[in-house]
Design a protein around this nucleic acid. Structure first.
Length: 250
DNA sequence: ATTGAGACCTGTCGGC
DNA sequence: TGCCGACAGGTCTCAA
């Protein structure tokens, strides 16, 4: 899409998580896409008009480029001046699309509230220490909070905690000393978070052949850590499934 | 102010 | 085969 003009927007469904605003398509048609950026789990498309198209995939949203044919849940279709057709497919309709002016974007709370980007150069143990110290909840729940760190979801929190050998049930504040300094385990967690994300980006997609994760959705399987004899367990935390090894994650 | 539960939707899967 | 409940990658709102 970047560099091309949006020639037509087809709304096959006018409501995703929210109803699309009146004039949604009109504000997009005729605009050239200057760039496509990402902030946490939000996609932000900068248009020649100065407007921004903000999108979120929710749970089940994804894009197909040049689909052979449109399917049931292809709710929004972008036709581009370079001939590309991009379809947004989202069965559960937890996804989101809206057009904001630059000013509106700057004040858009879901974005302004977000915590730091885990792959940004300045993200480190010190950046996590303060928000974790304040929390009275589990480490798992704290990392799921987008104000603490922007862009980690259930799968990658689970994977990072296993890699860092940290129990998801541990109190978030136990990774920080009483003077507010990161404990050694917090440095390991930060490294683990960066690793799981970089690996996921390298892999490009969740599904290829089977489950690509070490822990996620592997209840009952042996812990993959070398030398560990534990069995992966599934528990529920704040309504979400957590997978972990009770033997090596402490 | 923080936290967890429930809601929003549809599809899939396992058990009976 | 068919039905039913549980569960799914996220976020918002609400009550405690």
């Amino acid at each position: 899409m970047a560099g091309a003009r949006i020639t037509r927007v087809i709304l096959r469904r006018r409501t995703l998580r929210y109803p699309l605003s009146a004039g949604f398509a009109a504000r997009l048609e005729g605009q050239t896409v200057h760039r496509v950026e990402r902030r946490a789990k939000y996609l932000v498309v900068e248009l020649s008009s100065g407007d921004r198209l903000v999108m979120h995939l929710g749970m089940s949203g994804w894009f197909r480029v040049m689909p052979a044919q449109l399917e049931t849940h292809d709710h929004i279709v972008f036709e581009m001046s370079n001939g590309k057709v991009v379809a947004f497919n989202d069965p559960r309709r937890f996804g989101l699309m809206l057009v904001l002016s630059a000013d509106e974007l700057a004040g858009y709370e879901p974005l302004t509230r977000l915590g730091p980007e885990p792959l940004h150069k300045t993200f480190d143990a010190a950046a996590l220490a303060a928000p974790l110290a304040r929390r009275k909840t589990s480490l798992k729940s704290a990392l799921m909070d987008q104000r603490v760190i922007g862009g980690l979801g259930n799968i990658y929190v689970v994977e990072a905690l296993h890699r860092a050998r940290l129990s998801p049930k541990r109190l978030a504040s136990t990774l920080v000393t009483n003077t507010g300094a990161p404990r050694p385990t917090l440095y390991e967690l930060v490294d683990a978070i960066k690793e799981v994300l970089r690996e996921a980006i390298r892999r490009q997609r969740r599904t290829g052949d089977g489950n690509p994760f070490r822990i996620y959705d592997r209840e009952g399987e042996p812990c993959p850590r070398r030398g560990c004899r534990g069995t992966i367990r599934r528990i529920s935390q704040a309504g979400r499934s957590t997978y972990y090894c009770p033997v090596c994650q402490r």
